[in-house]
């Protein structure tokens, strides 16, 4: 038995050989399918990873611009609006909804941002001064948050794909390195057992036929001896000899028939 893979506990029969062959075929198809899935996912994964890298850099820039626009606000308002903003926040205007995308049978959620209409907590903030800056700052931040949401979907997809790819690869490897060799081993085993049986049977039959040949030879010898005896007797008593031959003819055909039968059985 080769390596640690072992083989399955089956009786080495022709039926289980058929089963194993089917199984091997199935495993090979499954393997190639999973392999393709894993490749598709990995492709996607690499793309996402690259996009995450890009998006993170972009986020750095976007957030910087946003922070700067907040600085403009504090310049224009001439004071701190942080507390007021925190207190007047009530309803989220900016929300996300989850969508799903199917990549090779894996459901990847992606977030989509939308703004809830009619919710505006800060409409009058900066009424006296700085209103325009605040408005602009809100837009800048809203855009920044959109980038963030995009990044968040990428990141979630990244985590899920990472997980799924691990699972798929584990399966691929399991099939490749365990199931297929094992099934192959089993098939080999069954084949070797069957061959063994064949050989045994062949040997047995050879023995049987040998024995039969011996028997036939012995019988022939006996008949020959009998014939000689009869010929001798006929020479001594011709009358008896003229009666005897037909009977002997029949007997000899019978013996031949038996031999033929034996051959058929071989």
């Amino acid at each position: 038995m080769s390596g640690a893979v072992g083989r399955e506990a089956v009786f080495p029969t022709r039926q289980s050989l058929g089963l194993m062959k089917n199984k091997l075929k199935g495993a090979e198809i499954g393997h190639s399918l999973l392999k393709r899935k894993s490749e598709a996912l990995t492709k996607r994964f690499r793309e996402i990873t690259r996009r995450i890298d890009e998006a993170k850099q972009k986020m750095g820039r976007v957030m910087q611009i946003a922070a700067f626009s907040l600085a403009e606000v504090s310049y224009a308002v001439g004071g701190d609006i942080g507390y007021q903003i925190q207190e007047s926040a009530k309803q989220a205007r900016f929300r996300v909804r989850a969508k799903q995308e199917n990549v090779s049978g894996v459901l990847l959620p992606s977030f989509e941002s939308y703004t809830q209409d009619g919710v505006n907590d800060f409409g009058l903030t900066g009424l006296g001064k700085g209103g325009q800056q605040i408005q602009r700052c809100r837009e800048t931040y809203a855009r920044a948050v959109e980038t963030l949401v995009e990044l968040a979907s990428l990141q979630t997809a990244f985590l899920i794909l990472d997980e799924v790819i691990k699972v798929v690869n584990r399966r691929v490897n399991a099939i490749e390195h365990v199931i297929i060799p094992r099934t192959e081993n089993t098939i080999k085993y069954i084949n070797s057992e069957l061959d063994e049986l064949d050989r045994e049977e062949f040997y047995r039959l050879k023995k049987v036929s040998g024995k039969k040949k011996r028997d036939v030879a012995a019988a022939d010898a006996a008949i020959l001896a009998a014939r000689q005896r009869a010929a001798e007797e006929q020479a001594a008593n011709p009358e008896a000899a003229s009666k005897a031959p037909p009977a002997k003819e029949e007997e000899s055909t019978d013996v031949l028939g038996e031999n033929e039968d034996n051959d058929v059985i071989f």
């Binding site: 505006n120 409409g123 009058l124 900066g126 009424l127 006296g128 001064k129 209103g131 325009q132 408005q135």
Partner: peptide
């Protein structure tokens, strides 16, 4: 300023 900022509110 109040006038300008009140547009849209």
């Amino acid at each position: 300023n109040i006038t300008l900022n009140s547009f849209g509110t």
